[in-house]
Design a protein around this nucleic acid. Structure first.
Length: 657
DNA sequence: TTAGTGCATGTTCCG
DNA sequence: GGAACATGCACTAAC
C-alpha cells in the first residue's frame, strides 16, 4: 500500500523528519498489542504524540513526571495512546533525582512500556547485548495482552516463556509487546540502542508483516479484505467450527493485524467483539454467549487450556461495563477449587493466565493488584507466586473477603476481564448453579464434537446461560457425550469432587448425551417455532427458551394415533398421554389431566410388563437406558432416604443412651 | 490453640 | 514424562 498522500506532520525522529500524514491512518498504524505505534515509513522509527524516547530514539508516550521532582521519568518505548504509567514493582527511577516512582497506584491502564533506567549502566544502547534480557526483565505489559484472544496468535510467543537469571534475578524472557507483534525478521532489533523498525512497506506485502498473527489470521492481512463481515475459514484445529464474524475493533484494540486492514464491522455486530470472542447481538434482548474459545492457533504449545477460556455473556459484560463506552476484554476464568474458596484466602491462578494477563513479578512476594468486582467494589489482592518444581505457582492472596462478598463456593467460576481503556482488572463470577458448563467441567470440543456451526451452539449448553432468551432445539440430534470432569483418585479429591459431589442418581441423569438431552427439550408453551437451516442443520427457534421436559416415549397406536408414554414419578407406572402434552420433569399421575381415570397412582397401568418391554425396546437405546437409569435412580433415592432414616434414628438412640 | 504462611507432595493432564 | 495444579502439612506468629 502506498503512503497516504496528505502529509501533515513530521516524523519525530530528528534524523528523519519525514512528513507523515494525518488520519485516515489506515495503513499507517502498526498494532503493538493494545497500542498503536506509528512507523515512519522512511526511517521506520516509532512515533506518536508524546515525547521522544532517548532509549530508542523514537517517540514514545510512556513518560510521566517524577512524583518527587517533577522531572520526567525515563520511559519505555511502546507508544500508548492512553497510558502514561509504567509498571515496575520496584518503581521507576527518576533520572534527575534518582527517586523511584511507584506507579502502580495511579495507573489508568497498565503500562505499555518496558522500562530502562536512564542511569542504568545496562541501558540497552550501551549494552545492546543485554537488551533482550532487559526487555524481558522489564515490566510486562499485560494489558497489551488484549489478549490471547484477540491476538492469541501471538500468545504462543508470549507464553513460550523460559526463565533465566540475570544478576541473580529470575528473568522471564517474555518479549516486549512490540517485539511480540513485530515481524520476526527484525535483524536490527537488538543490535544497537536504536529501535530500528522495519520500514512500513515491509508490512505491506502480506508475507513479511506480523508473522505471528499472520500465521493464524493470514486472511486478515489481505489488503483486499472487504470491510465487511467476513467469515474466517474453518479452523478445525480449534475444534471450533462455529461460524463467526470478524468484527472490527471498537477502540483500537481489536482486530487489526497489520497496517492496512481495518475491517469495518457489520452494523449489527459492532461493538461486541470482545477480545477474541465474538459476542454478537443481533437483536435487542438476544444474548448469546459465543464459545469462549480463543480465535487462535490452538496448536500452539502454550495456549491456555480450554478450561480457562472465558465465557461471559453479553449481559454480564454489559453489567460490568455499565453505561460507559468501556470495552470488556474477557481474559480467563477459573472454577474455584475447595482451597480457592476456602478460608485460606488463596486463589491459585493458572500459570499461563497469570503470566499472560497479570503483571510480571520477579519476586515471590509479588505485588498488590487492584481488582474491581462486578458490583464495582474494589479489592486489593496480593499477586504472588511460590516456587514450585522449578516452576511457579501463582496465587492471589487475600481473596476471602471478595469471595465471601460474592458468596462463592468451590465449583463456582470466577472470571477475569479487563476494562478498556481504563485497563482495570475486573473480577466477575458465575455461580455453579447458573454457570454454563465451563470447559473446566466439560472440555470444549470434546463435548460437542460432530456438531458444527450453530448446531454446536445449539447443543452447547453455554448458550443456555441464564441470560439467554432464545433457544435452539436441534432437530438433528448430533450429540456427543457430555464429559464430566475427571476426579482425582484419592480422597484428597479436588474441589470439584468435594463441592460437586453429586449423588449417584444425579450422576446418572447427567450422563445424558446431548442427543438425549435434546430429546428432553420441549417447545416453550404457546410458542410456535420458526425453523431455520444453518449449515445443513435444522433448528427450531423459539422466542423463549425451550423447556426441559420429562423423558417420554413416543409411539403410534394401532389406530394410527400418535401418543406418548410417560412414567409417574411416584408410582412408576406408565401413562398414555397426547403427544403435544408438555410435562414437567417431575410428573405424577395426579397431573394426568388427560385421563382422569388414571390420574391417581392407585389406577392400574395400561401397559403390561411385556408391552412395556416392547415399548422400551422399540424406543431408541438411549431412551431405554435413560429410562432404566431414571428408574434405578428413583429406587436409589428411596433407598438412600431409608438409609438416612435408619442413620438418623441410630444417632438419636446413641444420643439418648 | 488457632490462624497464617510457605513449601512439598500427589494427582491430573497435556504434549 | 513433565508441567500444572490442588491441597496437605510443617512451621511460625498471634491471640
Amino acid at each position: 500500500m502506498s503512503a497516504p498522500a496528505v502529509p501533515s506532520k513530521s516524523c519525530y525522529n530528528p534524523q528523519c523528519k519525514e512528513l507523515k500524514p494525518e488520519p485516515p491512518r489506515k495503513g499507517w498504524r502498526l498494532r503493538n498489542g493494545d497500542y498503536y505505534a506509528e512507523l515512519c515509513d522512511r526511517c521506520a522509527s516509532l512515533y506518536e504524540e508524546g515525547r521522544f524516547c532517548e532509549t530508542f530514539h523514537s517517540k514514545a508516550s510512556g513518560w510521566r513526571d517524577c512524583e518527587s521532582c517533577g522531572k520526567q521519568v525515563h520511559c519505555g518505548c511502546i507508544v500508548s495512546a492512553h497510558s502514561f504509567t509504567l509498571l515496575d514493582p520496584g518503581g521507576i527511577e527518576c533520572v534527575t533525582c534518582n527517586r523511584k516512582n511507584i506507579l502502580l497506584t495511579t495507573s489508568p491502564a497498565w503500562p505499555t512500556s518496558i522500562l530502562f533506567h536512564a542511569s542504568s549502566p545496562d541501558r540497552p544502547k550501551d549494552h545492546p547485548t543485554k537488551l533482550n534480557q532487559l526487555v524481558g526483565s522489564g515490566p510486562v505489559p499485560w494489558q497489551q495482552a488484549p489478549s490471547l484472544f484477540n491476538s492469541c496468535i501471538s500468545r504462543p510467543d508470549l507464553q513460550s516463556i523460559s526463565s533465566y537469571e540475570v544478576d541473580g534475578s529470575v528473568i522471564s524472557d517474555r518479549l516486549m509487546p512490540h517485539e511480540r507483534y513485530m515481524p520476526m525478521d527484525f535483524p536490527e532489533r537488538h543490535t544497537n540502542g536504536n529501535m530500528k523498525h522495519v520500514p512500513i512497506e515491509k508490512f505491506e506485502n502480506g508475507n513479511s508483516g506480523l508473522k505471528i498473527e499472520e500465521r493464524q489470521n493470514s486472511f486478515m492481512n489481505n489488503s483486499q479484505q472487504p470491510a465487511s463481515l467476513k467469515e474466517e475459514p474453518s479452523t478445525p484445529q480449534f475444534g471450533l467450527n462455529t461460524a463467526y464474524a470478524f468484527t472490527n475493533e471498537t477502540n483500537g484494540h481489536l482486530g487489526v493485524t497489520g497496517p492496512h486492514f481495518r475491517p469495518a464491522p457489520p452494523p449489527t455486530m459492532a461493538k461486541h467483539f470482545y477480545g477474541n470472542m465474538l459476542y454478537e447481538i443481533n437483536s435487542p434482548g438476544e444474548n448469546h454467549i459465543r464459545n469462549g474459545r480463543p480465535r487462535g492457533d490452538l496448536r500452539g504449545k502454550n495456549q491456555l487450556l480450554p478450561r480457562y477460556w472465558p465465557r461471559i455473556t453479553d449481559q454480564e459484560l454489559q453489567q460490568i461495563s455499565g453505561e460507559s463506552n468501556s470495552v470488556i476484554t474477557p481474559l480467563f476464568e477459573k472454577m474455584l477449587s475447595a482451597s480457592d474458596a476456602g478460608k485460606i484466602g488463596r486463589l491459585v491462578l493458572p500459570k499461563k493466565c497469570a503470566e499472560a494477563y497479570f503483571p510480571q513479578i520477579s519476586q515471590p512476594e509479588g505485588l498488590p493488584l487492584k481488582v474491581q468486582d462486578a458490583k464495582g467494589s474494589e479489592w486489593t489482592f496480593q499477586f504472588r507466586f511460590w516456587p514450585n518444581n522449578n516452576s511457579r505457582m501463582y496465587v492471589l492472596e487475600g481473596v476471602t473477603p471478595c469471595i465471601q462478598s460474592m458468596q462463592l463456593q468451590a465449583g463456582d467460576i470466577v472470571t477475569f476481564s479487563r476494562l478498556e481503556p481504563e485497563g482495570k482488572l475486573i473480577m466477575g463470577f458465575r455461580k455453579a448453579s447458573t454457570a454454563p458448563p465451563s470447559d473446566q467441567e466439560n472440555e470444549a470440543g470434546k463435548a460437542f464434537n460432530g456438531v458444527s456451526g450453530p448446531a454446536g451452539e445449539a447443543a452447547d449448553p453455554s448458550s443456555w446461560s441464564k441470560t439467554d432468551k432464545s433457544g435452539y432445539v436441534a432437530k438433528d440430534g448430533h450429540g456427543a457425550k457430555a464429559s464430566l470432569p475427571r476426579k482425582r483418585k484419592n480422597n484428597t479429591v479436588g474441589s470439584r469432587s468435594k463441592r460437586l459431589r453429586i449423588d449417584q442418581e444425579d450422576l446418572i441423569e447427567l450422563k445424558l448425551t446431548w442427543q438425549e438431552a435434546q430429546g428432553l427439550l420441549r417447545p416453550p408453551p404457546n410458542h410456535a417455532p420458526s425453523v431455520v437451516v444453518i449449515e445443513g442443520f435444522e433448528f427450531e427457534e423459539y422466542e423463549d427458551a425451550p423447556v426441559l421436559g420429562k423423558p417420554t416415549i413416543f409411539a403410534i397406536e394401532n389406530g394410527g394415533e400418535h401418543i406418548q408414554w410417560v412414567q409417574c414419578e411416584d408410582c412408576l407406572k406408565w401413562r398414555k398421554l397426547p403427544t403435544d402434552s408438555l410435562l414437567p420433569s417431575k410428573w405424577t399421575c395426579a397431573e394426568n389431566k388427560w385421563d382422569r381415570e388414571r390420574s391417581s397412582c392407585s389406577a392400574a397401568q395400561e401397559l403390561t410388563s411385556e408391552e412395556l418391554e416392547d415399548l422400551l425396546g422399540s424406543s431408541n437405546t438411549g431412551s431405554k437406558i435413560l429410562l432404566e437409569e431414571v428408574f434405578f435412580a428413583q429406587q436409589r433415592k428411596k433407598f438412600i432416604w431409608i438409609c438416612c432414616g435408619y442413620i438418623f434414628f441410630g444417632l438419636v438412640l446413641i444420643c439418648q443412651s
